[in-house]
Each structure stands twice: as C-alpha cells, then as structure tokens.
Design a protein around this nucleic acid. Structure first.
Lengths: 352, 352
DNA sequence: TTGTACGCGTTATCAG
DNA sequence: CTGATAACGCGTACAA
C-alpha cells in the first residue's frame, strides 16, 4: 500500500525519468524541502555548513534545477519578458530583437516572442497571450494603431517599454532614435553634397510615430533652410511601383538643372527607391542622391553603395531591456525617453 | 476571524487588481471551480445548459483566462515551444523563424526564443534553459558542435525537430533544403550559361551539416561533369578579406580564356563575394559569375542583380513547427526528413 | 449533474 | 538553525 497510484500522465513504454523535484533532493540529502529551498535562495548563510554542503552535493549529483513554472506560480514572478515585434521581416526589428534578447538573457530572463507581421489587430492578441503567460513586462515595437491594447498589461501593473515608436499618448518609457537630429543630419549632408529638391519616401504613415516624426522633421528642415528648399513627402505602399516612379520623375522635372535626392525612411523603402532608380535607368549618386535610414549589411553593395543613417540598434535593444528590467525590479520612476543619435555613413549614393 | 490574513504579496500603494482566478469566476457564477473548469475544457456537454451559460457569462464579464503556468504545473503541458536559432543576424534564420512562430501560434503554442549568436557553447545552455521552462519540444537550428546538448531534452522525452542542419548522428526529424539537388541546379545553370572553373565559397565548415553537404555535392558535380570541370572550395571567415581576394584571383588565372564563377553557400558569403568583386573591380556576370544560396530581398539590387537559389524558408519553418506539434501531440513515428527543393532565380550575376 | 479534496513544485510562515 | 505546513491556480478522481 505504500506505492502511490501509477501516474496516468506517463504515456507508455519509454521510461521518461520524471522531473527531479525539490523533494527528491530533500530526500537524497536527508533534509526537508524548506532547507533545500534555502540553499537555493542564497540563504545558506543561515545554515550549518555541513548541511548546506550535503544539500548542494545532492543538488549537483541529481542535476536538480528548480521549475520556473512552479516558482512563477508561487512568487508571481515568471522571469519572462514579452517581446512584441512589428515585423520580423524588417531588419531593424531583428537587429533590436537581437540586442534585447541578449540583455534579457544576461539578466536571467527568458524572452517570449510575438511577431505581429504588421497586422495591427494582432497587437491586442499579443499582449493578452503574453500576459496570460505572466510575463513580467513588455518590450513593444508597436504598430501604433491600438492604444488600448495595453489595458490588460497596465491593469496587471506590468511595465512596458516602447521601442522606436510611441503608442497613443501613453506615458511610457521609450527607447529609440533621435529622429529630428537624424533627419537634419541627412538633409544637411545632401545639401552640402550639392543636391537640390528633396523627396522623403516613407511607408504609409498609418499612425506610426517614427514615420511621422521623420516626415515632420523633414518638412521642418525644408522650411528652415536658408534659401528655402523644395521638397515633398511620398508614401510608398510597396505595391504601386508606378506611383513611386512617377513621383521620382516629377522630382526630376522639378529639379531642372539641379540634382534631385531622396531621403528614405527605412531599409524597406530604401530598397524600393533603389529598385525604382534601376527601373528608370538612373545611377544613384549621379542622377539621384539617396540617403536611407537603417544601415543593413548589404547597403555598401547596392549600386554605388547606399549612404545611410545607421541606427544603434544593438544599444536600442539593450537599453530597452535594461530599462524594462529596472522597472520590473521595483524602481518606480517617471516615464523616460532615451533618444539615441543616428550616425551618418556616406557612400556613393550621395556623392554626385 | 473569517477574514484570511492580508496577502503579503500586494506591494504597496498601486491597486494592482490581482489576477482573476478560477475561484473568482466560480464565486461570481455561484458554482464550484470544478464546474468552471469543465466549461473551459469543452466538457460543457455534461452540464446543465443554464449553468454552462451562467459560467460562461461570468468568464466573459470578468475577462478570465486560465493561467498557462498553473495548467503547465498540473498537466505537465506548457503549450510552449522552444526555438533555438543559430544566429538571428542570418536572414535565413529569421525567415524560418517567421514561418515557425506563426505556425506555432496558430496551433495554440507560444514560442520561447533563444539566439545562439553563433556561440556553440551556448547550445547546451539554450536547451537547458528552455527545458527548465517545460517547453514541450524544440525547433533547433543547431550549430552542430555539441551533439550531447540534447541529452536533457531527450531524457525528458521532448521531441526535437532540426532545421537546415543535422546534429551528430541523432535520429531526429529534419526539415531543410535538398542541398544536393540545389547545388546541381546552380552548377548546371552556371555551366549552361558558359562559365568555366567554379569556386564554392562557404563559411568555415565547423561541422555544420548543410555547409558540408553543399560542398560535397559541389565536388560531386565537378567530378560527374562530362568534360570534368575545374573547381575548388574556399572557406571564408569574414575577417581575412585578402584571402578571399587571392582565391578569386587564383580562380581567374585558372580560368584563362574562360569565365570563372562562384557558387556561394549562403547570403552572408554572397555578400562577401560581391564585396570582393567590387574590390577587384570586377563586374558580376561579365567578369565573374555568381549564384548564391538564399534570396533575400536585396538580391535584385546588388550589382546587376544576384542570381540565387531561393529557399522555401516559410515552408521550412511552417513544416518544422507542424512536424514538431504532431510529435508533441502524441504521434510516435520514425524520424522523418523533409527535404524541400530550392528554386533557381536567374539574374544578372550569372548572365555573361 | 455538481461539489470536495488533493496534488503539481515552490516558497514563506511559523513552530520547534 | 531546521522542519512541517499552507498557499500559488488549476485539473480531476471521487463522492454526493
């Protein structure tokens, strides 16, 4: 009668050695679970040397590791961080993801990933799925459409750090690029290099704050320029190639003798502009200046080399993670904004 | 005395509405937890219509969602899948990740991500960290160095699906590219296009099976060719640019009148070769043929357009996930290998 | 048809 | 200094 009923979970043949629990260790060391728990939680100081060592030996011998699930259940701390990414196909997202995942891991957190694939209605789903897993906080590369999506997070008091994009008027930490400065940097460079009228090409705004900020900064740049500069903003949706071609032709006409140039809002649009230039038979740099946000590793090899505003993606990811972890671990500061400077990399596409 | 002691977990000021538990729902609906549980587990058939509806209403009203953590603890099923990626900086990894994450989510699983960043010693760490979270299975883009890393997974009977690369001689499911066929496709194309001696450029083998398979298939191709073709394999480490340049020059000398060509093993090396050609002042296509594995979205825009072997990355990710989930949900088949065909995309870099 | 009671693996509290 | 015991939230035999 001392044998408990056979656990029904055990599927069939395979001798799946059940998880080693704290009980196993306790039994092996001839102590109670509580003692084992103390050894694990750095409270070994309060223990007899002899016992502490005996327990530690048992732990090592059995290869015991506590179950984060059970720990989460008990302490309400899952050591999980939810990472919501607008689109893993976007090189910027991936680069940030990389830095963030590493920083989380270094701090002892695991990352649960949710890719929105640019479907804005999924943002709510993402937050809910993730918070059902008791993630302790979110790093959010939002699509910016659904400011209410954070309700469930906010209600549970889970901190959120935004990356690159604001979300409604929520007072949240934000880590991103200093867009205004970056735009000035690029536009200034194009002016110095002798380019004339400018076209700012962006993906459709759709309420994405970084796009809007860049476009606004672009317009401001034009207005401030000493002899006012001609310029326009074009939203490229990636489908209607003809529209982009037409915009570029219009730009060229407007330029007259001068050389036109494009400032592209991210790597995706940069690729579109480069493709359009190829379609039109234009040589970048000579016929059309081009500077693009983001500096992916293929930038030096497209055409004469693409000039770029390199974002400190790794730092952005890392800082977002650290920022979030600080909050998780108790600090209760006002919402911070960490704006990092972009770095201008000049290549052939902005050298006449 | 009927009031239980104040829960000490509640931090301080902020009225963080504690998680809504099954008990809350039960109380709200005036039933027991068991009944609520039954409603949730599709066993509502055994319940009075009236009660079922009352419970459901309470669930909806309170916005209750069961805690996956507690469920995992109880049933030993976490609905978590561990995704270990060799290097998120590699476009192939990301593309696969994308398909896999979506398929997992569609099947009701969440993905826990671990990026190895090409550090092979981390593979063991990854598996252990992930399995401590009770993931139900692994999708593994392995570095191939540490065949023992899977011990802990195998011991707990967690299924594993490999992507793109084998791991030691373990009998595991594998989803990847039909490398031999793809190499033949590319080499055949280069031959038809009139290129002569071939250089296969790969990242250092380091025991990565897909690299080895591609190199082996390349050598086989050379040997089988009717007039035997000249060719060599070069391992590029990404640091020693001069070595790559030298290899290309040697190839050119060997070519004599004929046109040399390169077959590149992945997007990373393709970029290196393109950069080297630029350094040497060679025009791709005319001076050097180039076909590369992987077809990232920048391929059409580098030089005259890069010919590529496009991998069905989305399918690879999707199938890997489905395959894994099948196993998780009980099927106990022999190890499968799903080899998908590559698609040749001809662009300027392989047109003399 | 529904409710009670127990256990999953931990940690925290309180006795000893 | 150490051990027993009660939760954490859920699923489920078993009893009613």
């Amino acid at each position: 009668m001392s044998r408990p009923p056979v656990p029904p979970a055990k599927p069939a043949g395979a001798a799946v050695p059940a998880r080693i629990t704290i009980d196993d260790v306790a039994r092996a060391a001839g102590v109670s679970k509580a003692t084992v728990s103390r050894v694990l939680n750095r409270r070994a100081e309060l223990l007899t040397r002899e016992i502490a060592e005996r327990v530690q030996a048992a732990i090592d011998r059995l290869g015991y590791a506590p179950s984060p699930m059970a720990q989460a259940l008990k302490r309400g701390r899952s050591r999980l961080i939810g990472l919501v990414v607008a689109d893993v196909a976007n090189p910027f997202s991936v680069a940030v993801l990389r830095g963030a995942e590493k920083a989380c891991r270094d701090a002892g957190y695991m990352v649960m990933l949710f890719n929105l694939g640019n479907d804005d209605w999924r943002e709510r789903e993402a937050i809910q799925a993730l918070s059902s897993y008791q993630v302790e906080g979110f790093i959010l590369h939002t699509l910016g459409q659904d400011a209410g999506a954070l309700e469930s997070a906010a209600q549970r008091g889970r901190p959120v750090v935004l990356i690159d994009r604001r979300l409604g008027d929520a007072q949240l930490d934000l880590v991103g690029l200093d867009n205004a400065a970056a735009v000035r940097l690029a536009a200034g460079h194009l002016a110095e290099a002798g380019y004339g009228p400018l076209l700012f090409v962006t993906e459709p705004m759709q309420g994405v704050s970084s796009r809007e900020e860049r476009a606004a900064a672009f317009r401001a740049c034009l207005a401030e320029a000493q002899p006012a500069r001609a310029g326009a903003v074009f939203e490229s949706d990636g489908v209607d190639e003809a529209a982009l071609d037409a915009a570029l032709r219009a730009l060229q006409r407007q330029a007259g003798q001068a050389r036109p140039a494009v400032l592209s809002a991210n790597a995706v649009t940069t690729l579109r502009v480069a493709a359009a230039a190829a379609r039109l038979g234009w040589t970048l740099g000579r016929d059309l200046g081009l500077v693009g946000f983001d500096d992916p590793d293929w930038a030096p090899l497209v055409g004469p080399g693409l000039s770029a505003i390199a974002q400190p993606t790794d730092d952005i990811g890392r800082l977002a993670a650290r920022c979030l972890i600080e909050r998780i671990e108790g600090q209760d500061l006002a919402a911070r904004q960490i704006l990092l400077p972009g770095r201008l990399v000049v290549r052939g596409s902005s050298r006449p």
